[in-house]
Every structure is written in C-alpha cells, then in structure tokens.
Design a protein around this nucleic acid. Structure first.
Lengths: 127, 127
DNA sequence: TATTACGTTGACGTTAACGTTAACTTCTCC
DNA sequence: GGAGAAGTTAACGTTAACGTCAACGTAATA
C-alpha cells in the first residue's frame, strides 16, 4: 500500500529523536516530501533511515552512509557512471569483509576469555 | 624476548599519532611504564592499543573498548567477580553476533546492487 | 657546541553528531 | 474557543576524540 510516515512515526519506530531525523536531512541523507511545511516520509525514505542507523552501528560515519545509500541509486546513466558505481560497491564489500574478519577474531578472543573464566569458576567450586 | 616499545614505535606501527596514544592513556585505557618521564610500552600495552583500534573500526567507543579490555583481565578474584566477568563476556559476544548479522545483511544488499549494476552494464554493451 | 630528533606537559581549537531551548504555526478535540 | 499535541525554523550548547600549538627537557650527532 506504500504507506507514508510522519517524522515522529519514524522516530518512535527506530528509537531516535525527530531532531536526529531532521539533522540527517540537513546533511543531505534524507529528502522527504512536504505537505505544506510538514515532512512526509515514503517507504524509500524509511529504508534510507534504516540504512543510516545500521551503518552507525557498524561504525560508519554519516558521510560514509550517504555514500552507501548512493550505491543503491538506480539512476547511474552511462557506462562510466555504472563502472564507478560498481567499483564503489566492490570496495565497500571488501571493507565489510574486513570488518567481519575483525569481528570473528574478536569473538574468538572472547571465547578464549570465556574459557579461562569458566576454568577459574570451576576451580572455585571444587574448593 | 618481550620487547619494549617507544610511543613513536607504536604510533608508526598502528598509523596513529602520539597524541592519540597519550589521549588513550589519559582516558585510562593504557598504562605504560615510565623510564624517567618517558613512556615505555610492553607487549601487553601494545595489545591493548591493538584492541582499542580494532574496537574503533567496529564502531565501539573508547569507553566500550575499555570495558572490552577489562574482560580479558585475569585479576577477577572471587566467584561473584568471575560471574560478572562472564556475564560481560557473554553480553559482548551477543553484541558482536548482532553486528555480524548486520554486516551480512549489508553484504547481501550490496550483492543485489552489484547484480543490478552488472545487468545494466551488460545492457549497455549489447547496444 | 649547536642543531636535530624525540620526549614531556599543558592548554586551547576543531569536527561530527546530535541535544536543548525558544518562538512560532496548525490541527484536533472537548 | 482554548488547551494540548505535533509540526516548523533558528540558534546556541554539548560530548567524544582527537589536532595543534607552545614551551620545555634530553640525547645523539655533525
């Protein structure tokens, strides 16, 4: 049905303030329609916000998130543009694979710490 | 051999400024030895710095990184302390699993975008 | 011996990402 | 019709994470 959302709809759905959403617009990350002065967000704008917040949780800056969003942009006219877009996508993919590797090593570090901790706890129990 | 490092050794190895390293100390994340007034970093301090920077790349704040470092702390005396430590480790593990999931969905989004882009490029070639 | 390199401690400046407050409009509802 | 509730712009405040001097000490080296 292609619903529309008010600013506070999105704010409460994603647990951010309306100030935050307006700030993202100010930075060129969102571009809602206007009914008079009031903002109205269609589905694609909602998705953008979702992408921004996911980016944030993964340590991307707003500038980076803007770039990421643009990678999904279906405009990209000529071949050169498309090639640039593809390069951007590939580079961001590598970046993410690196992050995933780092997460994995962090997880294995923590697993080690967990075992040590378990060990020490068991030693206490025996006593 | 348990080498020691100067502040600029670490700075150049990890590609940060000495200011950054001193700042981390100021925030209680590092605690190098002193030879006179000069800082000297042993292996464990070097590892801490590594953990901090990895944390940063994954979107953790310095406060969070300090907590993470403390999860590896082998002091943890009594059972209650150990249990708390274990809880902290488990909670951080879950957090990381969440991040990994988000990375995976971002990767699959990008894969989709890549295919679309490839598609469009092929369409250009045929022409 | 003077310059160059590296170290130190302040202390103030900067940027990203919002928070907060003010002053105002517009809509709904009792 | 007046009292919220939700929207707006504008402007200043705040915090984290450093950058950037300045002013100084020390140690090697040309």
């Amino acid at each position: 049905m292609d619903r529309k959302y008010s600013i506070s709809d999105l704010a409460s759905e994603f647990n951010v303030t309306t100030r935050t959403i307006r700030f993202y617009e100010e930075k060129g990350l969102l571009s809602p329609q206007r009914i008079g002065a009031t903002r109205k967000y269609a589905g694609n704008e909602r998705v953008k916000l979702k992408l921004i917040l996911r980016g944030k949780r993964l340590g991307f800056s707003l500038d980076e998130s803007r770039d990421i969003i643009n990678l999904y942009d279906p405009i990209a006219g000529n071949t050169k543009q498309l090639q640039l877009l593809l390069d951007g996508i590939n580079s961001k993919q590598k970046e993410l694979l690196d992050k995933r590797k780092e997460i994995n090593s962090m997880l294995s570090d923590l697993k080690q710490a967990e075992e040590n901790c378990q060990q020490a706890l068991n030693a206490q129990k025996i006593k």
